[in-house]
Design a protein around this nucleic acid. Structure first.
Lengths: 344, 344
DNA sequence: TTGAAAGCGCTACCAT
DNA sequence: ATGGTAGCGCTTTCAA
C-alpha cells in the first residue's frame, strides 16, 4: 500500500508552535466550541457581539489559520476537486481552459487542486489520488481504467469525470473525440477538390492520443469518396521537415492535414523552401487556430477547436457531485470549425 | 477568517461506506495497530508472516486506501509541496520546467500539489494555502508579500520559496530577473551597430512582470552609450501590429527588441508587409527561442532563456526544508544567451 | 508478537 | 449565550 520512508527529524524546533483553535480559545477566554462558532459564522447559535470581537481579535493576534485536514476529517468530506496534471505538455488552449474551469468551480465553492502524478501508473495513480479523499476527480487524457474509477469511488469520490477520447466504465465522460477535428479537415480538403490527402503524424509518441483520432477522422471523411489517405510521419524539427519536403513530390499528394498549426508551419516552410507552391500544388491545413498561423504567407487555414466553457463544465461537475446516485452520463464536448484562409 | 457555506446534504447515502483501517483490522481479525504496522512496513516491530498476509488480504479485499488527512494530522506534518498555479498563462517553457520539478521533487518523496487560487488576493491567498499545512510553498511570480510569508511560516511551512523578480522578506528567493534578457538583447543590438533601439511592450498587463524587467535590462545595456531607447506598445493582434508598422518609419528606429518571439513574429510580418527590409533597415530580436522563429525569413534572432533544472531546484527545496532554521538564501536562476540568426 | 488507548485539530451535539 | 465532550482515521507509545 503506502510506504512512509523515514525522514530526519527537524534540526531545530520552531520557536512558535502552530496556533490551534484551542490557543485562540485560551487567549480569548472562551471555549473551543465558541471559537469554532464565531470563526465559521455558525447560524445555529447566537454569540454575543463582545465575545465575537474577542475571538476575532485573539485569532488575528495569534495569526490563527484553521487546519484543513482536521476540518475535513471531522466533517467527513471535503470540497476538493482533484485534477491530475496532464503528463503531456499541452498548449495555451488547455491552460486557458483549465484556468477558466478553476475559476468557475471556485464559484461553486470547490477547491481545485492539480496533482502531479508523474511516474505513477494507472491504478497506482488512482490510489494516490484517493488518499486525498477528493469529492470529485477530473481526469484528463486516458490512463484511468475502470479499476481506478472503482478505487476512487470506494474512497468517497462522489464524481469521477474523464476528459478524453473514450468512455470509462463508472465515470462520467466528457468525450473529447478529436476525430471531429480530422473529419472537418478532411471534408474541407475534399470540398476544395483535393483527392490525394496526406496526414502528418507527429513522431512524438506523447501526441498519439490526439494524432490517432485526428487521423481516423480524416479517414472517415474520405471514406467512400475514392480519395486516398497517406500517413506522413514528421518530427518537430526543421531537419525532419526538410527531409520530408525533399521527397514530397514523390508522395504525389495534393493536400495535407498537418496535425496542428505548429506542424503545419514547420511543414509549410519546408515545402516553400523546396519550391512547392501552396496551395496550388499542395493545400495545407492545420488545427488549433494559433494567432501565428495568420502571419504566414499564404495565411494558414486551420481547424478551430472549441472546448467546453469552464462554466458549463463546473456545472456538470457540481451536478454530478450532488446527484451522485445517478448513472454517469456522456457528453460530447469538442467542437470543430474550419477557418478557411489562403493555404487551402 | 474562513467561512464554510452550507451545502445540501447528500441526496442518498453511499451503499458502502469508505473502508477504514478499523474495517481492515476487523476483517483480518487483528487490531488497528497491527494493520498500521503491516501496511507501513514498520521496522520497529516484527509481525508474523501469516498475520501480514491476512492484513494485506483484508486490505485488498476491502479496497482500503489510507486517509492522507488523518495521517498527516496524526503525524503533525505532511510532505506536501504546494505550488500556486501561475495566474498568467505561461508558455511551454514553464510547463516543461514545472513537470521536471515535479518529477525531481517526487524523487525526494514530496507530493507536489498545484493549487488554483484564482481570485484570491495576496495575503488572503496565503491563508488559503496555509490551511493545507504544506511543508513547503513554491510561489511563482510576485504577489506574495512578507505578511504572506509570515502567515505560511506560522502555519508550519518549513520553507517558502519565491520564483520571481524580487526578494521577499523571510522567503528563499529564486531570483528570475528578466532584466538579464533585456541586457543580452540590448548588448547584442549595440554590438551589431544599432543605435536607435525600440522595445516592444505588450499591452496585456499580465505580462508586465516580465516586460518591465526586460525593458529595464535594455535600458541598462544602453546606458552611457548614447544609444536611444523607445518603448513601443503592441497588442497581440494583427491589427495592432499593422498600425504600428504603418507609423514605423516615423519612429526612426534601426532595431527592436520585441519582448519575445511571438511578438517578434507578429511585428516582423507587419514590417515586411509594409516593405521594411529586415535586418537592413530595422533589426529584430525576440526571446524564448521558439522553434517557430527559425522558420521565418530572415530567421529570427532570439534570446535563449535558461531556467534552472528541476533537479537543482528540488535539491534547493529539500535543503531549505531540512535546514529550516537557516536564513533564507538568494539564488540567481535565470540565464540568457543570444542566438544570433539572420534578423539582426 | 499483538492489543489497548491516547491524541493530532476540529466541529456539532447536548448540557447548562 | 456558552462550555463539555465525543469522535472523524490514523500512528505510536506502553503493556501484556
Amino acid at each position: 500500500m503506502v510506504q512512509i520512508p523515514e525522514h530526519p527529524a527537524p534540526t531545530s524546533t520552531p520557536q512558535y508552535s502552530v496556533p490551534t483553535s484551542a490557543d485562540v480559545a485560551r487567549l480569548a477566554g472562551v471555549s473551543r466550541a465558541t471559537v469554532s462558532y464565531v470563526l465559521n459564522n455558525a447560524s445555529a447559535v447566537r454569540i454575543s457581539e463582545p465575545t465575537r470581537r474577542r475571538v476575532h481579535q485573539a485569532a488575528k493576534e495569534l495569526g490563527y489559520v484553521p487546519h484543513a485536514a482536521a476540518r475535513s476529517l471531522r466533517a467527513g468530506h471535503s470540497r476538493m476537486v482533484l485534477m491530475p496534471a496532464p503528463a503531456v505538455p499541452v498548449g495555451p488552449l488547455y491552460s486557458q481552459f483549465f484556468n477558466e474551469l478553476q475559476w468557475a468551480l471556485s464559484r461553486f465553492d470547490y477547491t481545485v487542486v492539480q496533482y502531479g502524478s508523474v511516474g505513477l501508473q494507472g491504478d497506482e495513480a488512482a490510489r494516490a489520488w484517493a488518499e486525498l479523499r477528493p469529492v470529485a476527480v477530473l481526469v484528463p487524457g486516458s490512463g484511468l481504467g475502470p479499476q481506478g474509477v472503482a478505487v476512487l469511488k470506494r474512497s468517497g469520490a462522489r464524481a469521477v469525470l474523464t476528459l478524453g477520447p473514450e468512455r470509462v466504465e463508472g465515470a462520467h465522460a466528457l468525450l473529447m473525440d478529436h476525430s471531429v477535428v480530422g473529419r472537418s479537415a478532411g471534408a474541407h480538403l475534399l470540398a476544395r477538390g483535393r483527392r490525394r490527402i496526406g496526414v502528418v503524424m507527429p513522431e512524438d509518441p506523447g501526441l498519439d492520443i490526439f494524432a490517432k483520432p485526428r487521423l481516423e477522422g480524416v479517414r472517415q471523411a474520405l471514406h467512400g469518396t475514392g480519395a486516398t489517405l497517406t500517413e506522413v510521419p514528421l518530427a518537430y524539427e526543421e531537419q525532419s521537415a526538410a527531409q520530408l519536403a525533399a521527397r514530397w513530390r514523390a508522395l504525389g499528394l495534393d493536400a495535407v492535414f498537418a496535425y496542428n498549426d505548429e506542424y503545419a508551419m514547420l511543414l509549410m516552410r519546408a515545402l516553400q523552401d523546396e519550391g512547392i507552391p501552396i496551395p496550388d500544388e499542395t493545400a495545407v491545413i492545420g488545427a488549433d487556430d494559433l494567432m501565428l498561423g495568420r502571419l504566414l504567407r499564404p495565411r494558414l487555414s486551420t481547424v478551430h477547436i472549441e472546448l467546453p466553457s469552464g462554466q458549463e463544465l463546473a456545472e456538470l461537475v457540481d451536478r454530478a457531485v450532488r446527484d451522485f446516485g445517478a448513472p454517469p452520463g456522456t457528453h460530447e464536448v469538442l467542437g470543430a470549425t474550419v477557418l478557411h484562409r489562403a493555404s487551402s
